[in-house]
């Protein structure tokens, strides 16, 4: 077989990740390193120092100090652990429960009716209020915060997965699987879930980003993680009264929070493009 192919016509190169994606990955890596090693290297930054209250950024305290004289840099770096933990744990909990509910609801009509009515009910309650209520009932702490943030996210993810599964279920290859005698569990686990996993991982990034923001919001409102364990949320919260005097208390953790959430969302969008079957087909052809 003789074929001519000029260099320009040969196989398309695998698309290089864009600058935005590279930067996002870098930012994420830095934050994760901070979350793992921050508290080990710098401690929790709870040392009060009345002499050093509300000092602007300097060589001693890079991000300045807060109203109790605590080093904002140390608290921000160590606070990453809380924020990242909340983000990841919420994403895992939400995906496990919401994803499963969504897949089952999408495939079995009778489950669908029950699950979706419950989801509608839950979604009608403002998420942050629900979280505040849960925290006040269950008491503060990391686990409570994760539960409180997960509950309102679960119906959203369940709904999304349900709609994804509903559309996959109608595709001829599912009919084909039924007609070659595949059992329902096999169809769900081997055909539907693998084809839905792309959307699920995209949703994971959004849930993760939203959870980090929600944790910040809860801490800001004073119902989040305890104040002696720094998180970006409670660092920002502690700075809110001194914003005019000492904007750096809010600015640095706020900036980091924004960068982290933006990075996760950029990666999520990128993932969605990757898993979009239409785009995949275009790449393949």
């Amino acid at each position: 077989m003789t074929t001519v192919s000029s260099p320009a016509l040969s196989k398309p190169k695998p698309a290089r990740p864009g600058v935005a994606v590279s930067l996002s990955l870098l930012a994420l890596a830095v934050v994760i390193l901070m979350a793992i090693f921050g508290p080990l290297v710098f401690g929790l930054g709870n040392d009060l120092n009345p002499m050093m209250r509300l000092k602007p950024p300097s060589a001693i305290a890079w991000f300045g100090t807060d109203n109790l004289g605590r080093d904002v840099f140390v608290r921000t770096v160590s606070g990453a652990r809380n924020s990242v933990t909340v983000g990841l744990c919420t994403a895992i909990v939400v995906l496990a429960i919401g994803g499963t509910l969504g897949v089952v609801a999408g495939y079995f009509n009778w489950v669908d009716r029950i699950v979706m009515r419950l989801a509608d009910g839950l979604m009608a309650i403002p998420g942050i209020l629900l979280a505040i209520a849960l925290v006040s009932v269950l008491g503060g702490g990391l686990v409570t915060v994760i539960i409180a943030i997960s509950v309102p996210e679960i119906p959203r993810t369940a709904r999304l997965m349900r709609s994804v599964v509903l559309s996959i279920r109608e595709l001829p290859f599912i009919t084909a699987a039924i007609s070659v005698g595949s059992s329902t569990p096999k169809i769900l686990l081997r055909h539907i879930v693998p084809n839905a996993i792309g959307m699920l991982s995209v949703q994971a990034t959004y849930v993760c980003a939203a959870a980090i923001l929600s944790e910040a919001a809860l801490s800001f409102l004073g119902v989040g993680t305890p104040p002696d364990v720094p998180s970006w949320g409670n660092v920002i919260a502690s700075g809110k009264e001194y914003f005019r005097l000492a904007p750096w208390i809010i600015a640095f953790p706020g900036l980091l929070l924004s960068i982290m959430v933006l990075s996760i969302n950029i990666l999520g969008d990128r993932l969605r493009d990757r898993f979009d079957p239409r785009l995949a087909a275009r790449r393949a052809s």
């Binding site: 077989m1 074929t3 001519v4 192919s5 016509l9 040969s10 196989k11």
Partner: peptide, 14 residues
């Protein structure tokens, strides 16, 4: 044939 794999000569030759 796809556009990137056209045979040499007449495109229908194969």
């Amino acid at each position: 044939p796809s556009f990137s794999m056209l045979p040499q000569g007449c495109s229908f030759v194969e």
